[in-house]
Amino acid sequence: MSPLFRVIIILVCLGTSLFLHRSIKKAKMRIEESIFWLLFSILLLVFAIFPFVPDFMARSLGIYSTPNFLFLLVIFILLLRLFHTHVELGKLEEKVNRIVQDMALKERKEREREKHLETEQEDSQ
């Protein structure tokens, strides 16, 4: 891994950490959501500080260059994150559908109750 590439990774990791800190402070991001990005940034920072680790991993997997290994790793991790996000989104959509259905049933029951009261009042007159 070239020294320039290592410096770029370190700068991006530090920038990411500052951005996460500022986003959490301004309440634009929850701490739970930022943990993934912080751990991801730390992993890349470790790889930049100790370049023999990704070099060894790349050679062990038969990947020709360390940057190719890093790009492959980043793509894989982000795909896993995307899958997790879609699973969570599906759960939230299901909750919204259930809430909407419950509200619709309650409104229907309320309208039927009002209609029933109106017919009782008409009958009593």
Rank of each mutant, 00 (worst) to 15 (best):
I49L: 14
S65T: 15
V53F: 12
I42Y: 04
V53P: 00
Y64F: 11
V46I: 15
A48I: 10
L70N: 05
P51S: 08
M57Y: 12
F52W: 12
A58V: 06
L61A: 08
P54G: 07
L43D: 01
R59M: 12
P51G: 06
L45D: 02
T66L: 07
A58G: 04
F69P: 11
S60Y: 14
V46M: 03
L39C: 11
F47A: 05
P67N: 10
L43N: 04
A58H: 01
S60P: 01
I63D: 10
G62Q: 11
L45I: 08
N68R: 12
V46Q: 00
F50A: 12
F71D: 10
F47L: 06
I42C: 01
R59F: 09
G62A: 13
T66F: 06
L43V: 13
M57T: 08
S41R: 01
F52D: 14
A48G: 07
F71Y: 14
P51W: 03
L43S: 09
V46W: 01
D55M: 10
Y64D: 15
I42M: 05
Y64K: 11
L39D: 00
L39W: 03
G62D: 13
L44A: 13
N68A: 15
V53T: 10
A58T: 06
V53E: 04
R59G: 05
A58I: 03
F40R: 01
L43Q: 06
F69R: 07
M57I: 15
P51L: 05
F40C: 03
L61K: 02
L44I: 12
L45F: 15
M57R: 05
N68P: 03
V46N: 00
D55I: 08
F40D: 01
P51N: 06
S41N: 02
V53W: 07
T66W: 02
M57F: 13
P54E: 06
Y64W: 06
N68Q: 14
F50Q: 08
F40I: 04
A58M: 06
F52L: 10
L61S: 02
A48E: 06
D55Y: 10
P67F: 08
F69H: 10
L70I: 15
F69Y: 15
L70A: 07
G62S: 13
V46K: 00
F50K: 07
L38D: 02
R59C: 03
S65C: 09
F40N: 00
G62L: 10
